[in-house]
Design a binder for these strands. Structure first.
Lengths: 302, 302
DNA sequence: GCTTTTGTAAAGCAAATCTGAACTATTGTG
DNA sequence: CACAATAGTTCAGATTTGCTTTACAAAAGC
């Protein structure tokens, strides 16, 4: 490949302007520079292309007949750049491009269904996909570049996922629910348990809390589906610990712990406008958001 | 019209280089500037486009998945500028220059060997190279500016290659050939098949036709080499579908479809007389050319 | 002949871009 | 784990580019 001349879009615009305007001065005006700049710019373009582009007819300079290829090139590149600019404008406003989001079930159907609905409506040009899975799997997908952002439970240890950046959305209480609806006074008589499956972030939080409270860890069944846990409790298999949003129909519970819901993104992937737009929407509609002006409901006692 | 970002060809070259080279340092080398300049230039490009283009993964910076449109733009503009440069070079020196042609095998050795021989003889000062490959690869090379024109099978969908301009040369029938030389009356007993490899334009045409006819798509072997397909048929492995010119020695076939052979050039490429000359030659000697005055020789029997 | 219009040249200045060196973070190695 | 090599970035300084203003010269219009 030969060395390419270092043309600039600006110069090509000059050429296009000159080809349409009746005189160079108005062309200069139309691109918003002085006549002198236009003249110099075109002289430079001519020099760089290395082929004479103009010939003088009296005072005016007119495009040489042999130079239409250059003009055609200029037109095309300017048009393409215009396309690029409008594309960029749409992406910049978060209205275009692709956004692959992951959420845990509680977030997708419990906390944020309305937020998601609105977001999708507001960004109809966006190629939006939502993937629902447990926290660990979601974070794996973020690390692998398969998802752009996820809403999940904060991992047990802080520095565990070096490639991932977390931002806290809100803290969600976890409560114990028993088949009878009552809970023994002394915690060492609690149980047996029906919990989220081992490996789950929420399970880790619950286990830590139970140990802390001195309750025996007698686990008789596991599932990552809250529906399954609820049914087990109803059937009297054991007690469970769930976030409120997933405990419908289980009567009042006793709050024993809390989990942190976070937005996770790949470290270094900052700045995607679509990601930022959704992150903002999530922040705004977070239940009992930490320090934002108080939302009317939200008071979950800890 | 909005204000266009003032991108320079240089910056677009950087982007293309980075997308090809294994690391930024070698990319910098390949465009002949310091690594520092490349880094700054790309940062500037990113700023001007106004959309984040890169993502850091460890110490490498990798193109963001959402940024292919920018890369595509860069590729196209760089290729067009390359065309402009060769055009300018030709004008400057008055010589005819270079012509890099691509053809599918059937065109190169089946339909146009004589045309090519004559053309090369008539333009002995032309630096002529012929590259034989499947249609898809050829179109990629045209888009990348590596070839000036190609003769290939029209892509399955019309608007698939926006940067490429097609002109139909002729329509070529595709026929089925079986080991026995006979073909069952009912199409649902046809097969099994030995076809061009998946991804091939001709394969797509054949598959569509077979589905249309109700024949089962039982594919037992694939190759892009017609020689291989012929041998397989001879060995009784299965039936195939080929253009006539590539079916020597396979007995009479049954025409089931047709493919369109086209000349493809970069859209908007600066008019190259050599390209036009060859295009004319191809038109004139096209088998059963649509409406052109009959050429004396050239008769490849259909 | 004189003014107006149109394009060019010169001078000065601000911004862009390059190089080389110092610097940081990651990766590889003994 | 220290230590060096590698990849990329940042910084300072020099060079180049591009623009504006000003001045000027060649038609065109009166």
């Amino acid at each position: 490949m030969q060395a390419l001349p270092d043309l600039s879009i600006r110069q090509l615009e000059y050429l296009v302007a000159v080809s349409t305007a009746p005189s160079w001065s108005v062309a200069a005006d139309s691109v918003g520079v002085s006549a002198s700049a236009l003249s110099q710019g075109l002289a430079e373009l001519e020099r760089r292309v290395g082929v004479p582009l103009f010939e003088r007819n009296g005072r005016r300079r007119i495009l040489r007949s042999g130079a239409e290829p250059v003009l055609a090139h200029a037109r095309q590149v300017v048009a393409l750049t215009g396309d690029l600019a409008t594309w960029a404008e749409r992406v910049r406003s978060g209205r275009s491009g692709r956004l692959r989001v992951g959420m845990i079930d509680a977030a997708a159907v419990g906390h944020y269904p309305e937020t998601l609905r609105h977001f999708r409506a507001d960004h109809s040009d966006l190629d939006f996909t939502l993937h629902v899975a447990p926290s660990g799997a979601l974070l794996d997908l973020v690390e692998a570049g398969e998802l752009d952002m996820v809403v999940c439970v904060a991992p047990p240890e802080a520095g565990m996922r070096p490639g991932i950046e977390l931002e806290e959305l809100f803290v969600e209480p976890l409560a114990v629910f028993t088949p009878s609806g009552r809970l023994p006074r002394v915690s060492n008589r609690w149980g047996p348990w029906v919990l989220f499956a081992a490996g789950s972030h929420t399970r880790a939080v619950v286990e830590a809390a139970l140990v802390e409270l001195g309750a025996p860890l007698d686990i008789v069944a596991e599932s990552n589906q809250p529906e399954v846990l609820r049914t087990m409790v109803s059937l009297g298999v054991g007690a469970t610990a769930l976030p409120m949003v997933q405990a419908t129909g289980l009567g009042p519970g006793k709050v024993i712990a809390e989990r942190r819901l976070v937005v996770a993104t790949r470290r270094g992937a900052a700045g995607d406008p679509a990601v930022e737009a959704l992150r903002d929407a999530l922040r705004v509609s977070a239940p009992s958001s930490p320090s934002v002006a108080a939302s009317s409901n939200g008071g979950v006692p800890t």
